[in-house]
Amino acid sequence: MRIALFATCIVDAMYPNVARATVNILERLGHEVVFPSGQACCGQMHVNSGYLKEAVPVVANHVAAFDNGDYDVAVAPSGSCVASVQHQHPMVARSCGDTALEARATAVGAKTYELSELLIDVLGVTDAGAQLGSYFPHRVTYHPSCHGMRLLRLGDRQARLLRSVQGIDLAELPEADQCCGFGGTFSMKNADVSSAMLADKTANIAATGAELCAGGDASCLMHIGGGLSRQGSAVTTLHLAEILASTEEAPVSVTGEVRVSTGKAAR
């Protein structure tokens, strides 16, 4: 299968290892990965902040980058960006009266999958240890991000994949379904409330005794990881894709000054 990678802007710029891990997993399964170079961002920050007009060129760019027959399916290692592509893009096109863009956006949305969704529903991965060689001998807890959970209805797909990783010790996160408080510009506009939500999330993470908190959205992990870092916690965050990409021969290291996939520092 020819799979187009939508890296998402935050992963592209801040967490390149998440995209590299995604490529690695898909190639391990024998698929061909392409990276449409015109891609940039899904535009949800603009939409969610009320800047619909400014979102239009961002959405149009994404549709232009992915509206081609050069791939079978597209994948992004992010629930909220996929939710934006599927739910917001047609709405943004509609809001500016561009019915052609709306139709193209809907078609792109229909071909776009979140990583765990693609792995399980399309590529038939049921056992990451056996099928991907995923190996990660650490105590991990897992935060299911809101948009994956409630907009994409991912259910326990991400958790199922994590559970099937060799050597992993997956600790249940209390109040896992509670938002971490990120919410895009919410974290700045309503910084006090956001911080209060984050404090409860990090306390719950600490209570699990896990070495790190995994998740499927780099933005939420940046938020949670940023909070843990500020609190001086030894607990770090890591994206699901990186855990799946980790093998016994080439394990992801999580000792020392590790923050989620900050380039070379994550080695």
Partner: peptide, 25 residues
């Protein structure tokens, strides 16, 4: 500025040496 709302309770990790896009290219 408004980004100070973020750093009131969270750090931002150091950016990577290169973006995914650069690495891919």
């Amino acid at each position: 500025g408004i980004a100070g709302g973020w750093t009131q309770s969270r750090d931002i990790p150091a950016p990577p040496a290169e973006s995914f896009r650069t690495w891919w290219a």
